[in-house]
Design a protein around this nucleic acid. Structure first.
Lengths: 244, 244
DNA sequence: CGAGACTTTGACCGTAGTCAATTTATGTGG
DNA sequence: CCACATAAATTGACTACGGTCAAAGTCTCG
């Protein structure tokens, strides 16, 4: 089952505490139990519901992609980050009004994790918060200081590394379930310009895109061109992917 | 003493737990004791030293302005946020290399706060972390989706509100100790364009700038023009500024 | 097969960048 | 208090990156 493998690789790579936990079988209920937790499933293109103002919940992505975004009155949208299997976010609703929305990009499964309590792994949670924050800074550099071509490359390189870390890169290629509009809204560019930039990158054979599958040629060279700084790759022997 | 007044307003407004703590006298040592804490003083234009890789410290700004930034190899700089009196940040050094630097914009006094322990006020710390995060998202919208004029206005409006909250706005005017280069590096624009944008805003009498002092005409109208969303203003009676 | 979403193309425009020089603070030592 | 050095702000001329508008082509999926 595809979902199952994705889940294994992703959550186990990011959440060491889960490694030895027993896995239970999926069934086709809306909220199958995994690791004794409840799964919530959402189709693509829906907003994850908030809670009452003032409350907060912490979520782990089990499978699928999501994005954090904000919408302006006039329809402009800024996407802050993309969430991949194994990532965690806390969503909370501020009194001040709309801060961030959480939108499913693909069919998605999430599970809730208590920030505290017997189930919590403080180290894993802190690490995932820091990763997320780090990526926000990376993204700010992209939209603030990189050219269009650099932005696209840099983002693709981040996806490559993050997906690689959870075993979703095969033969240097990965599935990218984003529309060009989403890429544009993330990178602060227009959809037309994203289209032309992608074409140019293909023409210069820096990247290959076929039916939503992307592969990067000579990632090291591209990383240099796009000022891409790979994030911590602890390469601790014990941390190597289990199911790669 | 100017610094003293600034400190009172800023820290007391943000750190309710400090309100009734006794204040000790400043002296002219490098690290005068305030609230039984040590103060570190830095001149303008210096980088706050990091610690060893892997460690972290949490800092409160007592007086002065700082900024968080990252530098690219080729000299491009992105400023992520500005820190004002009463703000807190945690700085840590990642194994991966340069993530953020912390640079003093003016003469600055900071004090360290334990994240945990008898001195810590968890609520105040969590609130300041959330404020900071919220501002990062606001800033991402600025550089990703606003025009130059909107970016400048929006940032000035944020400064207005934040400085107002700590009693540093007098008669609608506040001191802005930033060079146009810093504004440019924060907003993802060139210094020349910032200059021209400021001139245009002055010409349209939306803002007034004289010797580093800024005042905004009709903030509400400007907020609308610049898609500025004021952040939580709890306006809880007990939370009103004490020394305003 | 048709509807709608997504991608691609062309023509044109305009915001913002670059380069280089000048003017105006800001400061510092004499 | 002035002279000079330096940083910061300003200006002009020109460029180019990226946006907008509108139409046509593709792909998906029921």
């Amino acid at each position: 089952m595809a979902v199952r493998g994705e889940f294994d690789a992703a959550v186990q790579a990011r959440m060491p505490a889960f490694r030895d936990a027993g896995m239970q079988e999926f069934d086709d209920l809306r909220r199958p139990a995994v690791f004794g937790r409840l799964l919530e499933r959402y189709p693509a293109g829906v907003t994850i519901p908030d809670l009452a103002v003032g409350t907060a919940r912490r979520i782990i992505v089990v499978s699928g992609w999501l994005c954090e975004f904000r919408m302006l009155r006039d329809g402009r949208r800024q996407i802050f980050s993309f969430l991949l299997p194994g990532d965690a976010v806390s969503i909370r609703t501020l009194a001040g009004g709309a801060s961030r929305g959480l939108l499913t990009v693909t069919h998605t499964e999430i599970t809730e994790t208590p920030a505290l309590g017997p189930d919590a792994d403080p180290d894993a949670i802190i690490e995932s918060i820091q990763d997320h924050e780090e990526r926000l800074f990376d993204h700010m550099v992209r939209i603030g200081r990189l050219t269009a071509k650099e932005r696209v490359l840099n983002l693709l390189l981040e996806f490559h590394d993050r997906l690689d870390a959870i075993g979703l890169v095969k033969d240097g290629a990965f599935r990218l379930p984003l529309t060009q509009e989403m890429i544009a809204d993330a990178l602060g560019l227009s959809i037309v310009h994203i289209n032309r930039t992608l074409q140019e990158l293909r023409r210069e054979s820096m990247i290959m895109v076929r039916r939503g599958v992307v592969s990067l040629h000579q990632p090291d060279k591209l990383a240099f061109l796009a000022s891409y700084q790979p994030r911590r790759r602890p390469s601790t022997p014990g941390e190597a992917p289990l199911l790669a």
